Simulated assay, not measured.
Amino acid sequence: MKPAFTRGFRLHLPGGAHLDGAEFPSGRVYVLDDPEYGLATAATSMEHLLEGYHSARVEWPGDLLVPLALFQDLAAAAAELAAAAPGQTADRARTVLGRLTEYLGADAMARTPHPTEDRTEKH
């Protein structure tokens, strides 16, 4: 059954980048490769689109943000982090953030404040 309306999706590329896209009721799909310059890719179906984006993963609205296996992996890593000796916590924290970055995209690390950064709002 085809959707009655256009629906958006996110195309996760290997390396952590992601692209926004839309699937139309006809089955055609568009992905914004470079919105700043208006570059996009169009395909007659999602299957055809994915042939050009090897190893990409499609995220639909309502999909789990973090799959269960990744969540369990991160929970185990967080438990190890809590039990780590004080000198090992930074390395373990980087491991957890690395796994999140791998799944959520390269910007996850950039959005995470460094432990020594002042997190208070400056006026």
Rank of each mutant, 00 (worst) to 15 (best):
K2F: 05
P3Y: 06
A4S: 12
F5Y: 09
F5V: 14
G8F: 09
G8C: 09
G8Y: 06
F9P: 10
F9E: 08
F9D: 06
F9Q: 09
H12G: 02
L13K: 06
L13F: 10
P14V: 08
P14F: 06
G16P: 07
A17S: 06
H18W: 13
H18G: 01
D20M: 08
D20Y: 12
D20R: 10
G21Q: 04
F24H: 07
P25T: 03
P25I: 12
R28H: 06
R28D: 05
Y30D: 00
Y30H: 03
L32Y: 03
L32A: 13
L32M: 07
D34C: 09
P35I: 03
Y37I: 06
L39D: 06
L39N: 07
L39R: 11
L39Q: 05
L39V: 07
A40R: 12
A42E: 05
A43N: 03
T44R: 01
E47V: 01
H48W: 02
H48M: 05
L49S: 03
L50I: 02
Y53L: 06
Y53W: 14
H54P: 01
S55D: 15
R57F: 01
R57V: 15
R57H: 07
E59Y: 02
E59N: 07
W60M: 08
P61Y: 03
G62P: 10
G62C: 08
D63A: 15
L65C: 12
L65P: 10
L65Y: 05
P67G: 08
P67D: 08
L68I: 04
L68N: 04
L68R: 11
L70A: 08
L70P: 08
L70V: 10
F71P: 00
Q72L: 15
D73G: 02
A75Y: 05
A76R: 12
A77E: 11
A79C: 04
A79D: 14
E80D: 15
A82I: 05
A83W: 00
A84S: 14
A84E: 11
A84N: 05
A84Q: 10
P86L: 13
P86R: 14
G87Q: 13
Q88M: 07
Q88L: 11
Q88F: 00
T89K: 15
D91F: 02
D91Y: 00
R92V: 11
R92P: 01
A93G: 07
R94E: 14
T95I: 05
V96P: 01
L97A: 13
G98W: 06
G98D: 13
R99W: 03
L100A: 08
T101V: 03
T101L: 03
T101S: 13
T101G: 09
E102W: 12
Y103W: 15
L104F: 15
L104N: 09
A106C: 05
A106T: 12
A106I: 12
D107A: 14
D107P: 02
M109K: 09
M109I: 13
M109R: 15
A110H: 04
R111A: 15
R111Q: 15
R111C: 14
T112M: 14
H114D: 15
H114I: 02
P115V: 10
T116Q: 11
E117A: 15
E117S: 14
R119A: 12
T120F: 13
K122N: 13
K122G: 13
H123L: 13
